[in-house]
Simulated assay, not measured.
Amino acid sequence: MTALWTYLHANWAQIREWSLTTVWLASVPVAAGLLLALPCGWLAHRHRWARLPFVSAMGVVYTVPSIVMFLVLPELLGTRILAPVNVVIALTLYTFALLVRTVADGLDSIPATTLETAAAMGQTRWQRLLRVQLPLAVPVIGAGVRVAAVSNVSLVSVASVIGTSQLGQLFVTGNNVSSLTPIVLGLILFIGIALAFDLIVVGLTRLLTPWNRSVIR
């Protein structure tokens, strides 16, 4: 433990910068992927004939190894291989691919009787979507966002293999100097960030579903 504190103190400025970079590299794709998945998940829910091929295609995207994605995107986008935008776009694609099905499943989980009641009260299709379906689907969508957020934190570390500057560099440094100290420190920091992300998503889910707080874990 003393070695960890000594290493952290000696390299605090660099580790702080890497930590901030890791946080935004992992968090921005979650928000962007969710924004893209909401309309696409609604389409998959609304048009059943398109759901299977669309969701299957997203499943294929999610199975592409992250290191391959990080190496291919610069060629497709014309960006530098070390550019953080490559990591953001890759993780956005993974988040989108994961959450499309989650959004569709969340909307599917709303009982037909609930929608019929809303329609009988004079609500339009869009009002039912915004006021009934999406709010009631939040627990299901939130569960998917939790998985995506934690997965993104893990996937960010893989970008260190291609030289992207973030906390994964601690693993590379530890390997290069044959020391466990930076590796263990990096592991602790990644776990801490993942737990923080998970708690934030849980908190937001509870905030958006006050009627359901007692059953969300």
Rank of each mutant, 00 (worst) to 15 (best):
V215F: 11
L207T: 08
T209P: 10
Q133I: 05
D198G: 00
L134D: 08
V138R: 00
L207Y: 15
G174A: 03
A97T: 00
L115K: 06
L208E: 02
G41M: 07
S214K: 02
L38H: 04
N11F: 15
M1Y: 05
L93H: 04
S109C: 03
W5Y: 08
S154M: 05
P84K: 00
A90G: 10
H47A: 04
G203H: 11
Q123K: 03
L25F: 14
L115R: 08
W126Q: 08
L208S: 10
D105H: 03
L35G: 07
E17W: 14
T181F: 15
C40A: 09
M69P: 00
L20M: 13
V64Y: 05
L82K: 01
L73T: 03
V177R: 02
L130N: 03
T95P: 08
I193N: 02
L189F: 15
L36S: 08
T124G: 15
I193D: 02
A196Y: 01
T6V: 11
R51Y: 11
L38A: 03
R146N: 11
E17T: 14
L73E: 02
L134T: 02
S160P: 13
T102E: 14
L99S: 07
R16L: 15
A37C: 09
A148T: 10
L73V: 00
I89C: 07
M58C: 14
L204Y: 09
G168L: 02
T21R: 11
L77H: 05
R16W: 15
A112K: 09
L107F: 15
P210K: 01
D198E: 12
G163H: 02
L35S: 04
W5R: 01
L167Q: 11
G168V: 07
T22E: 09
I141Y: 14
N176C: 07
